[in-house]
């Protein structure tokens, strides 16, 4: 059984993420210790809050290099919500702050024109562009998941978009590039569909 580390770097509560992973039978530990995280087979980076604050915390707690090394070693990584944004180069939310730079692109704010309410809050559908993505096993045909965000990554390489969602623009709701997975929504808050995705993540080899 693979050991899954949830990175607790002080950006929002991680109870729900931990509970959801545990409920699917994952061997989970929560840590901000780079040495422990380095031993994990899979790493989950959750988070809510501001991009700049999050990068500052990751740097202050010496977590940047362990995350990058984990990914470069080809080990499975999952970023959730803000944890997805951090994979990119930068964000409009915190100009001048560099992200982890694993994926190319900038995080942008939704444009509240055309009666678009921001934050994008509530249940929306994900369109599966890469049905072969291992997270999608046995999902219903039109899965809806829970979103709660004002920013979204504008992905340079459209090929890595495994699922997209329509909200004013067609944005990347799930990213998949080899061992790197990331999602904009909260699987831990998305009832059956979310738990299925979590289960697929836990069971993935």
């Amino acid at each position: 059984m693979s050991r899954i580390a949830i990175v607790d770097y002080g950006m929002g509560n991680i109870h729900s993420v931990r509970k959801a992973l545990e409920a699917q039978g994952g061997d989970i530990f929560v840590s901000n210790d780079p040495a422990l995280i380095a031993q994990a087979d899979k790493v989950v980076l959750p988070g809510v809050g501001a991009f700049g604050d999050a990068m500052e915390e990751l740097e202050r707690q010496n977590l940047v290099s362990v995350l990058i090394e984990h990914i470069l070693a080809g080990k499975v990584f999952l970023g959730i919500c803000l944890g997805m944004h951090l994979l990119f180069d930068s964000s409009e939310e915190s100009l001048g702050v560099k992200g982890l730079g694993i994926l190319k692109g900038q995080v942008k704010k939704f444009d509240p024109r055309h009666n678009l309410k921001v934050p994008h809050m509530g249940w929306n559908q994900i369109k599966l562009r890469k049905p072969e993505c291992p997270l999608f096993k046995t999902l219903p045909q039109h899965p809806a998941v829970y979103f709660c965000h004002s920013f979204y990554p504008e992905v340079r390489d459209r090929e890595i978009i495994a699922a997209s969602t329509e909200y004013g623009t067609d944005f990347a709701s799930i990213i998949w590039r080899g061992n790197v997975f990331a999602m904009q929504f909260h699987p831990e808050k998305s009832q059956g569909v979310g738990l299925k995705i979590v289960e697929n993540f836990v069971k993935m080899l």
């Binding site: 509560n13 109870h15 729900s16 509970k19 959801a20 409920a23 829970y146 709660c148 909260h186 831990e188 808050k189 998305s190 009832q191 979310g194 738990l195």
Partner: peptide, 11 residues
């Protein structure tokens, strides 16, 4: 609130 968060997977 802790108990709710541990038992339900919805917002």
């Amino acid at each position: 609130v802790e108990r709710i968060a541990q038992n339900i997977f919805m917002p």
